[in-house]
């Protein structure tokens, strides 16, 4: 029994990602002369994972259901831009950021519902639909509503939330780094997503639909409704994550999300999710995001110019997907 469990474990992509992550950390730790595992670097990496990690999780749940969402950055951008604009105009959120977050969630949910309505009702290819809605939503944000960049006028409570921290650490040169409180959001989201995916029938329905949609319908799932709920939830979360990002960056820039999907989706797939649906786990996704964040944050530590960051990100992903593709090919034989 133990042996079969081990065998099953070694078949999973998550397992390899985890090992690579550990190996990479060890390697960089040695090359950089112990700088990676210094507290300052660690808290920076954790901070870097907050927003991308949460985006990756919503991307993951869509992908498990067999969908491919290109529109979540556009939804997010609309939601946080609209929410901050309203807050600034109304003078809200000077002391409590709650209203802003609720607005962003609301806007996100509305746009998500639009996605969900089209995808569930017309049984269309999700990648193409979300390409259309992405373009449309971007047009809404920057065309129809002409939302502006908000930097210095950002409500104080957003700024405060972004700047709040659990503890501060100093490195040998006396540089200060802090562990942002927003890490809580990521932790909660990891917990909730894994609970939903593993322990609720809704989560199991997503796996079932991703595995075989026709069978899921025959088994008695209301596939239409589940898909609709999924896209509403994803939209709402995209709005929420966007707000977290606004707080952390201490500015709201409508354009900031453009192309985000191209950074997140590959990472999710690196973490073991299948673009054909039905496969993927929270653990693998977070490991993959961790891997990429570590790579981009440790460039300087190992003496590589930070302009190479994108290249190494791409390389890590290319190698990752190549290995899993070759492995899958071998297994088929």
């Amino acid at each position: 029994m133990n042996k079969t469990a081990w065998k099953r474990l070694t078949k999973r992509t998550e397992f390899y990602i985890f090992i690579v992550l550990i190996a990479l950390i060890a390697g960089i730790q040695i090359v950089s002369g112990g700088q990676l595992l210094e507290p300052t670097t660690l808290v920076t990496i954790l901070r870097g994972m907050v927003v991308d990690g949460m985006f990756a999780l919503i991307c993951l749940i869509v992908m498990i259901s067999g969908g491919f969402d290109l529109s979540f950055p556009a939804i997010s951008a609309f939601a946080y831009s609209a929410a901050t604009t309203i807050c600034v105009n109304q003078g809200w959120c000077e002391t409590n950021p709650l209203a802003g977050f609720l607005l962003a969630i609301l806007f996100g949910a509305i746009l998500g519902a639009f996605n969900g309505w089209i995808i569930a009702n017309f049984k269309l290819n999700t990648m193409i639909v979300t390409l259309g809605t992405q373009t449309f939503f971007t047009g809404l944000t920057m065309g129809l509503f002409q939302m502006k960049e908000i930097t210095s006028t950002l409500p104080a409570s957003f700024r405060a939330l972004g700047e709040s921290y659990f503890f501060e650490v100093y490195n040998s040169q006396g540089q200060r780094s802090t562990l942002t409180t927003s890490i809580v959001f990521l932790i909660i989201m990891i917990a909730v997503t894994s609970f939903v995916l593993r322990k609720t029938m809704f989560g199991r329905a997503l796996y079932a639909i991703g595995g075989n949609e026709v069978s899921a319908e025959r088994a008695g799932y209301n596939v239409k409704r589940i898909k609709f709920i999924l896209y509403v939830a994803v939209g709402a979360l995209a709005g929420f994550i966007g707000m977290v990002r606004v707080c952390l960056a201490r500015q709201s820039i409508p354009k900031a999300m453009v192309g985000k999907e191209m950074a997140i989706i590959p990472a999710v797939i690196l973490g073991g999710a299948s673009i054909f649906g039905g496969e993927g786990s929270v653990f693998g996704t977070i490991c993959a995001i961790g891997l990429i964040t570590v790579v981009s944050n440790s460039m300087l530590l190992v003496g590589i110019d930070s302009y190479w960051q994108n290249f190494f990100n791409g390389l890590v992903i290319l190698i990752g997907i190549t290995i899993s593709a070759v492995q899958a090919k071998r297994q088929r034989r």
């Binding site: 029938m201 199991r204 796996y207 079932a208 991703g210 595995g211 075989n212 026709v214 069978s215 899921a216 025959r218 088994a219 008695g220 799932y221 039905g278 496969e279």
Partner: peptide, 21 residues
């Protein structure tokens, strides 16, 4: 096509219908 879910375990495949019902 047997209406099964290839990505799920045998346990889940067997239990899923009655859980939904």
């Amino acid at each position: 096509d047997l209406s099964i879910f290839p990505n799920l375990t045998v346990r889940e495949n067997l239990a899923i219908n009655s859980e939904i019902t």
